[in-house]
Amino acid sequence: MGDDMAESKVRTGTVKKKASKRAKKDWVAAYIFIAPVTLGLLVFYIWPFIQNVWFSFNEVNKFNMTSFVGMQNYTEMVQDKEMWTTFGNTLKYVICTVPVGLFLSICIAALLNSKIKGTSVYRTLYFLPSVTMAAAVAMVWKWIYNEKMGILNSVIRGMGGKGVGWLTDPKIALYMIMIVGLWMTVGYNMIILLAGMQGISKSYYEAAAIDGAGSMQQFFKITIPMLTPTIFFVMITSIISGFQVFDVVYMMIGKTNPAYTSTQTVVMLFYRQAFDYGHKGYAAAISILIFAVIMLVTVVQLWGQKKWVNYD
């Protein structure tokens, strides 16, 4: 009996020793596993983030030499009319595309959630624009919108109307860009919303049908409330990407376009300041502003969601 005890003590001892040896081996293995990503992110993302914050308080010249200027970039930014215009354009873009995009993608998802044939073919076709290169697609749309020879104006003229300068009229060019943006993202968001709809338990609908609720009532009383977490997710991601529009605007609006000022977004301004004009310090301040605005909007959304998002 005593021997047994002793033996088991020895055994647990060796097991413990083995375990700690194993743990140490595990640590080494774990550090080796995480080393590439961790070092890469430190060098190319985390340190650059800190540097960028520093740059925003400096003037950065062509040779990457910095000289401290305090808040100057920020005060300049607040007084910069161009910054306010681009910011206004971006805000307009977000305010228009997010609700319209949500509405359209919920509608299409609802139609695809009904018992009809060919849903997978529809799904595939609607998803197509979101996998293709924005730069290429923007070129095609620019050609469609072309004032003199574009197909859109040809159709309008064919019906007896007058051609419109879709991308050159400062009043409408931004809206035309929004259409392209929506065209690219609605299918993508629709897929997420459709998955959300398909995740709602059938028993809710069965119970509602027994109580005599029609399909419209079911949609507004069951589908939409149950879908609010997904709607929230899509909304947040759309807002964040809306604030960062670049490719399409860059491709569609040239510097000599009369609608140039009315279509420039903040990220366009950032790009021009940093890489065309070489004002890297000022551009860094703009990027901090973009970050701050996105953070602010996200925080407000997270706070506001309590009022309308259902989590069960």
């Binding site: 190319f44 983030f49 960028n52 740059f55 950065v60 940093a274 890489f275 990027s287 970050f291």
Partner: peptide
């Protein structure tokens, strides 16, 4: 934390 930051923030130093 890298995920929460818009990509433009890193661009100038990365360049």
């Amino acid at each position: 934390s890298v995920l929460m930051v818009p990509g433009q923030i890193f661009l100038i130093p990365q360049y």
